[in-house]
């Protein structure tokens, strides 16, 4: 058993982090926030060139022949960077929808009663007839409601949607933990860094504990691909991202409540992701049902 990252996996993670820092740093994030809601096509193609969408395709079909663990690592980075766009849907369309693998086609899909990025997408998978826009909670994820909808279990890629979304949540969880720790080291009140107060320090430690537990669950689910492992990973990752972002906001005090701070964007994105692939309840039921398996 060698559960840790291989050299190649570390290199892939680091390269992805550098690529995203170059193409989607703090300024690009601000620009995306102020600009119209459409994916940055140049960035999308850069991701395509880097293999973000195609990495699991066989080499003969223009991919890198890599597996779910590698996909999870790059989606974790996307989550960290708050990268907008229907990334999971496009990744899962690679090989099936022309242009998805190279980042030339932006693909979205109908997930339950919602579609992300409908107006900006080139291709929509599923039936989006009668879709109505809603005023999205997350300024960087435009949403439509779909009256017909379709339950999660009727979708082809629900297991992979859930897994890759969990990887994004993991990225968020790690990032907000770093942001909170940075702030707690730098911000001084009562003559010392606020991180010297146990009440604040323990909030930060709790964020790290949830992140690292979720990391083990998400990576293991990527290795096994087992649907129960995936459902479990999702529960841990959702919790780590949402509670992490909330605690990060709390650690930031008044600054955390401002539009200017980055923290609310992480929380809002994390909330959007909790609705993907059938929601938390379904995942809880999947793991619960497994407890009875073998005793029937």
């Amino acid at each position: 058993m060698r559960f840790g990252l291989t050299e190649d996996q570390r290199a892939l993670r680091d390269a992805t982090r550098r690529l995203l820092a170059r193409h989607f740093g703090g300024q690009a994030l601000r620009a995306a926030l102020d600009g119209p809601a459409r994916p940055d096509r140049a960035l999308w193609r850069a991701l395509g060139e880097a293999g973000f969408f195609s990495l699991r395709l066989p080499e003969a079909r223009g991919g890198a022949g890599l597996g779910l663990p590698e996909a999870v690592l790059v989606f974790e980075e996307a989550g960290r960077a708050l990268l907008p766009g229907p990334l999971v849907a496009t990744h899962l369309a690679a090989g099936a929808v022309a242009g998805a693998a190279t980042g030339e086609a932006v693909v979205t899909d109908v997930d339950g009663g919602l579609v992300e990025w409908l107006a900006a997408a080139d291709v929509v998978r599923g039936d989006a007839t009668g879709a109505v826009p809603l005023r999205s909670l997350d300024p960087l994820t435009p949403l439509h409601r779909v009256p017909s909808g379709r339950p999660a279990h009727e979708r082809r890629d629900v297991r992979l949607t859930v897994l890759l979304t969990a990887a994004e949540q993991l990225g968020t969880a790690g990032r907000v933990c770093e942001l909170a720790a940075q702030h707690a080291r730098a911000r001084e009140q009562f003559g010392r860094p606020v991180g010297a107060f146990q009440a604040v320090a323990h909030l930060c430690a709790g964020m790290l504990v949830r992140t690292e537990t979720a990391r083990a669950a998400v990576y293991a689910a990527a290795v096994t691909g087992d649907p129960v492992d995936v459902a479990a990973a999702r529960l841990l990752a959702d919790e780590a991202a949402v509670r992490g972002a909330r605690d990060c906001l709390q650690v930031h005090g008044g600054m955390g409540f401002t539009w200017e701070s980055e923290v609310h964007l992480h929380l809002k994105r994390a909330w959007v992701r909790t609705r993907r692939g059938g929601g938390v309840t379904e995942s809880e039921e999947v793991v619960a049902a497994d407890l009875l398996a073998g005793t029937a």
């Binding site: 058993m1 979720a214 309840t281 809880e284 039921e285 999947v286």
Partner: peptide, 24 residues
Amino acid sequence: RRRLGRLGAEFRALWRLVQWNVSA
């Protein structure tokens, strides 16, 4: 049921965390 499901996820994750720490 959901509470037990959540605990199922929790202990799965804890086992993976042991494996992760042991590998490290």
